[in-house]
């Protein structure tokens, strides 16, 4: 069971943001992607999740081709992405953000809403319960009823993770989940991710803090200028001469 990224290329104008990216990621694993700014990491997530169209290449999730699926259909297929810049529903509270993410709600159809009110109420109760668990799990209780637009950057990152969890996917793509998060909280998010992974949820995590990522994932890939330079266990990858030259050498 895996996410297969097969020879993906993507150009913006004449600029090749992705240049023949090929990766195979076990669906239930913890997998890291590192690389300098502009390497194409976020673009890769956009292409994989369907928000951007690849010029070439194919994406398969657990054997199913995703190429013709819309972004929501890909999410429903079991793979949810988060955004590097958090996209909270800023006028909704944290609780409402999470509730909105719950799948298959009868109350989200007008017919269901007006003709099956009992069922809607029942579902709302069940969703609220799951949301409460998620809020506690992510240590967001103190801000649960605040408009999410007022959260700190780190709290927004947690909220994005929480919303993704509410969808109950098999695989979550996290785009720099630790950016702007204070170090104590980074430790906590990592613990949460490891816990969730032990329950069977896979993660692909983009991060530019190498040190943070090597503590978390057993496997990672290094990207630079739209290409995957190396892939494997952190130490092996970091010892790769190409990587040393292109990435580590170039970063102050």
């Amino acid at each position: 069971m895996s996410l297969e990224i097969h020879d993906i290329s993507k150009a913006f104008g004449g600029f090749r943001a992705l240049d023949g990216v090929r990766l195979t990621i076990e669906t239930g694993s913890l997998f890291g992607i590192i690389g300098p700014n502009g390497a194409g990491k976020s673009t890769l997530f956009s292409v994989v999740s369907g928000f951007a169209r690849a010029d070439e290449g194919q994406i398969r999730l657990d054997g199913q081709s995703l190429d013709s699926l819309s972004p929501p259909a890909r999410a429903r297929a079991g793979m949810v992405r988060t955004f590097q810049v958090p996209r909270e529903f800023r006028h909704l509270t944290v609780r409402e953000n999470l509730m909105a993410a719950a799948p298959k709600q009868t109350g989200e159809s007008l017919l269901g809403l007006f003709f099956r009110p009992g069922r809607v109420r029942e579902e709302e109760g069940a969703i609220a319960e799951r949301v409460n668990q998620t809020i506690r799990f992510l240590r967001l209780s103190a801000v649960a009823d605040q408009p999410s637009g007022k959260l700190s950057g780190g709290q927004k990152k947690l909220l994005e993770l929480g919303r993704a969890l509410m969808v109950e996917p098999r695989l979550i793509l996290l785009d720099e989940p630790f950016a702007g998060v204070n170090p104590v909280l980074i430790g906590e998010i990592m613990e949460r991710i490891i816990e969730l992974n032990m329950r069977g949820i896979g993660f692909v995590i983009i991060e530019h803090d190498l040190e943070a990522l090597t503590r978390l994932v057993p496997q990672l890939a290094v990207m630079d200028r739209g290409k995957v330079l190396a892939q494997g266990a952190p130490q092996a990858v970091l010892d790769d001469p190409l990587v040393r030259e292109a990435y580590l050498g170039g970063v102050s």
Partner: peptide, 27 residues
Amino acid sequence: RIAGSPFGRLIEAIRDNEEAVQALGKD
């Protein structure tokens, strides 16, 4: 009734960020 319902919650989410709604599997 609509505003206070799951439907209302989702259309407000669309107003606030449509792409995030798509990312959560809803059209």
